[in-house]
Amino acid sequence: MCKNKMNQLFEDQKSVHVLYSYNESENYIKQIVSYIQDGILSGDCIILIENDRLYPLIHNELKTLLTTDQMKMIHRINNFDFYYSSGSYHPPAIHDYFNKTVQPYLEK
């Protein structure tokens, strides 16, 4: 999906769960950093569901682009913990876990 279509989706929906499939981690990191930066600059809170291998690379890149206060708007969840919170990949459990995770941010 091109960036303009993604941005339109986010404007229309406001709260979107994105599963981004990729073949090259370098391109993925560039895309996710751009997406997060655009969201933060728009005043959005970001919940990033990412693995332990890629998150440090994403985090380090974001630190060069965002202020300390902007970095506080990014909340990371380990993808394994998120998708297997019930012990197996079970969509209703994932949905419940997501709602519990997001609720404190919605209240703020």
Rank of each mutant, 00 (worst) to 15 (best):
Y84S: 06
D44G: 11
Y83F: 10
L19Q: 04
N23C: 12
I29G: 04
P91L: 14
C2A: 04
S88A: 14
C2S: 06
E107M: 13
Y89H: 13
N4G: 02
G87Y: 07
I46H: 02
C45G: 01
L57P: 00
I36L: 09
K63E: 09
R53Q: 08
K30C: 06
T64R: 13
H59Y: 07
D96P: 00
E107F: 09
N7L: 10
T68G: 00
Y55G: 00
H95G: 06
I47A: 03
C2M: 08
N27L: 05
I40R: 01
I46W: 02
M1N: 11
K5H: 12
L106H: 12
H17L: 15
E50I: 03
D52F: 09
Q8G: 03
L57Q: 13
D69M: 08
Y35R: 10
I32C: 03
C45S: 05
T68I: 02
P104E: 13
I77V: 11
N51A: 08
E11S: 14
N79T: 05
G39C: 07
Y84F: 13
I94K: 06
Q70A: 13
M73C: 09
D81Q: 06
V16T: 14
H75L: 06
T67V: 03
N99Q: 11
F80S: 04
K14V: 12
Q8W: 03
Y84C: 09
G43C: 15
H59R: 09
L106Q: 14
S85M: 02
I49R: 04
D44T: 10
L66Y: 08
N51M: 06
N7K: 10
K14F: 11
I32S: 00
Y20V: 09
F82E: 04
G87M: 08
Q103T: 14
F10H: 00
N23W: 12
D38H: 04
K100Y: 12
V16E: 06
F10N: 01
Y83E: 01
P91K: 13
Q31I: 02
M6V: 09
S88H: 15
S86L: 13
E107Y: 10
F80Q: 11
P56G: 03
P92K: 13
I74C: 06
V102K: 10
R53D: 06
P104Y: 08
N99M: 12
D96R: 07
K63D: 04
M71R: 03
D96F: 05
I46A: 05
F82T: 02
R76F: 02
Q37G: 00
Y20M: 13
L62T: 01
N27I: 00
